[in-house]
């Protein structure tokens, strides 16, 4: 089998997101900040949000991590902009179900649906879900 199966996990678009992540950095005026740790590797991921009219107006993430966690974080930031707290909660739930291998309606996830290949690599599920969990907790923070 060698590395051919790896293509299912590391699709080109995932590698591109990891190499050039979107919304990487921090917000000077962040209203909601969550820092989560991946206990298996010790990586730290920070997500910062600003809401306006009950929707995400600005988002940024920072920290280091593996290809999967960085690409997933980058895609997450693309997808949650303009979404409400309830919409984001639903997206995070669907994303988690997807990487656990469940059948889902992936329309809501946009480009992040490409991470479904993670389901074949159970050891990497936590890497993929970390940023989404952070987003879920961030939108639920009281200002």
């Amino acid at each position: 089998m060698g590395l051919s199966k790896l293509d299912n996990l590391y699709r080109q678009v995932i590698l591109e997101h990891a190499t050039h992540p979107h919304h990487h950095g921090s917000l000077d005026d962040s209203e909601k900040t969550i820092e989560l740790r991946n206990p298996t590797c010790g990586d730290v991921l920070k997500v910062e949000l600003i809401m306006a009219n009950d929707k995400v107006q600005k988002v940024a993430f920072s920290g280091t991590g593996c290809t999967i966690s960085q690409a997933s974080a980058s895609m997450m930031t693309d997808e949650i902009i303009g979404k409400s707290k309830e919409e984001i909660e639903e997206m995070v739930t669907i994303f988690s179900e997807m990487v656990m291998g469940q059948e889902i309606d992936d329309d809501l996830l946009g480009e992040a649906a490409i991470l479904e290949g993670v389901a074949q690599f159970p050891a990497r599920i936590k890497c993929a879900t970390l940023a989404w969990k952070a987003a879920y907790q961030a939108v639920n923070l009281e200002n």
């Binding site: 089998m1 060698g2 290809t67």
Partner: peptide, 13 residues
């Protein structure tokens, strides 16, 4: 390259 990516690639081999 992150160690997790290396370990997954080695596991595939």
């Amino acid at each position: 390259l992150h160690p997790h990516d290396v370990a997954t690639a080695l596991d595939m081999q």
